Simulated assay, not measured.
Amino acid sequence: MKSLQDALYNWLTIKIVSDARPDDTAAVETEQMFYEILTEEHALADIEITKDEIMYYVSYKIDGESKSSRFPQELIDVMLNQINNEPEKYHNYPSE
């Protein structure tokens, strides 16, 4: 994934889902995949998430320099909200 911003967005969106649904193996595995993209392809370290009433903030270090990105909550929470609104469409299939 070329864009750091896209990788952060994808990781944060699925991270919120996997944190809310720790038994959802697909969400957990997808979050791990995007986390590896952040740490291996983009060389991020010390990744932390905070939020307020409007935004999610992702802080991290890259090449020892502290940086951050922010994302509107409504943009990040859309996947979790959709799952919660239509749970019958999002079954968890256990790994074998």
Results as ranks from 00 to 15, higher is better:
Ala20Phe: 03
Pro22Val: 03
Pro22Asp: 01
Pro22Glu: 01
Asp24Gly: 00
Thr25Met: 11
Thr25Cys: 08
Thr25Asp: 13
Ala26Cys: 06
Ala26Arg: 07
Ala26Tyr: 08
Ala26Thr: 06
Ala27Tyr: 00
Val28Ile: 11
Val28Pro: 04
Thr30Leu: 09
Thr30Trp: 09
Glu31Lys: 13
Glu31Gly: 11
Gln32Tyr: 03
Gln32Ala: 10
Phe34Leu: 06
Phe34Pro: 02
Phe34Arg: 05
Glu36Ser: 06
Glu36Ile: 02
Thr39Met: 11
Thr39Gly: 05
Glu40Ile: 04
Glu40Tyr: 01
His42Ser: 04
His42Phe: 00
His42Asp: 03
Ala43Lys: 15
Leu44Cys: 06
Ala45Gln: 12
Ala45Val: 05
Ala45His: 08
Asp46His: 12
Asp46Lys: 12
Ile47Val: 14
Ile47Asp: 03
Glu48Lys: 14
Thr50Gln: 12
Thr50Ala: 12
Lys51Asn: 13
Lys51Tyr: 05
Glu53Arg: 15
Glu53Asp: 15
Glu53Gly: 12
Ile54Asp: 15
Ile54Lys: 15
Met55Thr: 11
Val58Thr: 10
Ser59Thr: 08
Ser59Ile: 02
Tyr60Gly: 05
Lys61His: 10
Lys61Ala: 11
Asp63Met: 09
Asp63Glu: 15
Asp63His: 13
Asp63Arg: 15
Asp63Gln: 15
Gly64Glu: 09
Gly64Gln: 09
Gly64Thr: 11
Glu65Lys: 14
Ser66Pro: 10
Ser66Val: 10
Ser66Gln: 12
Ser66His: 06
Lys67His: 06
Arg70Ser: 10
